[in-house]
Amino acid sequence: MTLTIFNGSPRRHKSNSTLLTEHFIKGFHSIKEKENVRVCYLAETKMLKENLNIFDRSEQVIIIFPLYTDCMPGMVKEFFEHLPVKDSSPSLKLGFIVQSGFPESSHSIYVERYLRKLAQRINCNYLGTVIKGGVEGIRSMPSSMNKKVFKSFHQLGVHFAEYGEFSGEIMVKMKNPIKFNNMELIIFRFLKITGLVDYYWKSNLKKNGAYHQRDNKPFGN
């Protein structure tokens, strides 16, 4: 079975999607060492025709992308608009991974409905959508802080190699929290007061000498 992963991150190789994909593939190769996994970048918009040909020739496809304004990035949507409609008997297995910076998966469950319908619309065998929140900044974090998320993607790859599908159990775990529970809301409010919630943004603003401009309003009030 030919597995192709289309990476829909506008950040291309330097994306969180790339990091997660690498761990998925490591898990996949721990079971199917010799099976090639092709990775294509949708940000290479000049490669659209070639990417569509690769999609057409693949037997299993995973499309991974970051949530952009509550949905897929424009370049991923462009790819979707060009996807061929398969023959009426579904043979191509198509799954999605949606990652976002927000910690809760409630932001991504709306696009999940769209993706399910898309797979149906182009006659593909829908494998489901893996949703993972809290991903922004993982590239700059020490790897020890990302152990859990990387392990989950490794296991997801292992299961995919063994069964040709996403593990329902891992998907459920990754999707949590869908929304913060009361205790998590209390913790969040406390962290907000301490400034830790926005630490990532503040430290980057300071690093770039732009902290004093953080509230700029160049287009009005």
């Binding site: 949905c71 424009g74 370049m75 979707f80 927000f102 809760e104 898309l118 619309r121 929304k179």
Partner: peptide
């Protein structure tokens, strides 16, 4: 393909510029 055009989405993606990076809670969500 079941959604607004990729062109409109491309423009919409850019609107994050109009927001602030800091996170607040709205309806119990970030």
């Amino acid at each position: 393909r079941g959604f607004t055009s990729s062109l409109l989405k491309r423009m919409t993606d850019r609107l994050v510029t109009l927001l602030h990076p800091y996170i607040i809670l709205t309806n119990g969500e970030c």
